[in-house]
Nucleic acid binder design. Structure first.
Lengths: 193, 193
DNA sequence: TATTTTTCTAACAATTTGGTTAATAAACTT
DNA sequence: AAGTTTATTAACCAAATTGTTAGAAAAATA
């Protein structure tokens, strides 16, 4: 029937992503995932023996997204250091904006299961090791960690700020994108004095 | 026996706070809470009919903490606007630092159960309504929401940044406290040009 | 087309977990 | 101190949820 042999497996994974990212490992019900995937309960267990196994599959994909967000941001190598950093902040922000549920998932995973992020750390450092040791790029580790933290936080806080009635999520995010760029550039200027 | 009539009830609440804040409503096990409280399972249900009822008791306390963090930050009314804002950022940051698990709890609650924050919104706005309409305090809503979001995010991201190996949580937080003050003051200056 | 492997189904089993109850002990009240 | 209310316990229960199994259908392979 399906185009790929594994089409239902993929359906389950996609549904699992949605549910696990919203409700977490414990809050998610395998029945809901199966239903969302248009698949019977037993099929889910055919492809993934246990709930944890399914969760780990989702986890890996999301950790890969996270790693990619950082590596992609620093892939551009032309231009001045200011241009490259301005570009990095924007690219990273936009990447996360296309995965807006990622930050909360990462934060919760790190708090509850800190070791799951270890592979990300390795892979990420490998992907940006040249930047971290670039003599033109002073305080690279600090700048990188600031970019990650400022950008992820925007998406973590947007729902809270919106719910408190200060503005809409989109207003907040649009504002934050530019402010994060400004903040990082300013810090760069200040740190290289 | 106990000093207060309600000593075990309080024990349960304290244990529940710890467990619910770490694992959320679904991840928490009432058995673990009871055990942590040094109380039998049935005692927990004597004081709190259901898990949800216990969770709501915790929720109310935490939402009150959140409300307090904002109101306390803006309680000082002497000095220039710059002094007051610098003070507000620091006071708010320090308050959250004494409740470091609060931000993640709030963020998760807002995402999963958005209506629970409504009372906080009312109470908070009441507590700072004078600031929001102070003619000396331009863009008050934006400034307030920036303070809340920058400060809460520091605590959300600290474990992630530390786990990624950029620095320790404390280094990150100490740096962030000062940077948040600087960022907000700069934005204030810029917005009043 | 016959055979084998993969994918899927429906009913069932096991466990975890929240919640109850009936009897007991402790603490107040008079 | 007797009686009444409040607090606690241990054993039990029911519902929800994860996981299994034996076999049918479909797909691949020969």
């Amino acid at each position: 029937m399906g185009k790929h042999k594994d089409s239902k497996r993929e359906d389950v994974l996609v549904a699992a992503e949605e549910v696990f990212l919203k409700k977490g490992l414990e809050g998610a019900r395998t029945a809901e995932i199966a239903q969302k995937a248009g698949v019977t309960h037993a099929v889910l267990h055919y492809w993934f023996n246990t709930k944890e196994e399914l969760f780990n599959a989702v986890l890996q994909r999301k950790m890969e997204d996270f790693r990619e967000s950082v590596v992609v941001a620093f892939s551009k190598t032309e231009g001045t250091i200011e241009e490259r950093i301005e570009n990095a902040v924007g690219v990273h922000f936009d990447f996360i904006r296309s995965h807006p549920e990622l930050p909360r998932f990462i934060v919760n995973e790190v708090c509850c299961n800190p070791d799951n992020i270890e592979p990300v750390r390795e892979a990420m450092k490998a992907g940006i090791s040249d930047k971290l040791s670039d003599p033109d790029f002073p305080n690279a580790a600090t700048i990188v960690s600031d970019i990650i933290s400022l950008n992820l936080s925007a998406f973590l806080m947007a729902p809270v700020i919106a719910k408190l009635g200060f503005c809409t999520e989109d207003e907040f995010l649009d504002r934050r994108r530019q402010e994060n760029i400004d903040t990082i550039l300013l810090k760069l200027k200040h740190s290289s004095l």
